[in-house]
């Protein structure tokens, strides 16, 4: 299950991003883009994220996965359309389709919770 190595890399980046916000800052939501062509299963990713986030700044954070629909453009007719992940030929021309989207594996943003300085001190 390579989702575990990916989740661990994700957590390393979250910890790195939160460092400037001080020791009390926590990640509350993590937004991930996963292209439909990646061999990454959202359920497995959720499970691995929960396991890998134990004891980190993202423990208990919600992982929001945005699944990106694959899109491509035919090298022949130039028509752009959504593509079935098993079909990379243009249904009209039988020519290869150039990918425009669907291969993402991106940590897009992090929602950070930090103690309010006014209420805290």
């Amino acid at each position: 299950m390579h989702e575990m190595s990916l989740a661990m890399g994700l957590l390393r980046e979250i910890e790195r991003q939160l460092k400037p916000y001080g020791p009390e800052a926590r990640a509350t939501r993590v937004f991930l883009e996963v292209g439909g062509l990646r061999a990454v299963f959202p359920e497995a990713m959720q499970l691995c994220f929960r396991a890998a986030s134990q004891g980190t700044v993202a423990e208990g954070a919600e992982l929001v996965i945005d699944e990106i629909v694959p899109r491509g453009r035919c090298v022949g007719c130039g028509r752009e359309r959504e593509i079935d992940h098993t079909y990379f030929l243009c249904p009209d021309c039988d020519l290869p389709v150039k990918l425009l989207a669907g291969e993402e594996l991106l940590l897009r943003s992090i929602e950070i919770e930090e103690p309010d300085p006014k209420g805290d001190k």
């Binding site: 980046e13 991003q17 509350t28 991106l106 929602e111 930090e114 805290d120």
Partner: peptide, 21 residues
């Protein structure tokens, strides 16, 4: 949550765009 609890907290969303691979 801050109002019920002991501390106030502020939430902000930061853009990262980090490719996991």
């Amino acid at each position: 949550a801050g109002a019920q609890g002991p501390r106030k907290a502020a939430r902000t969303e930061i853009e990262v765009r980090f490719d996991l691979l």
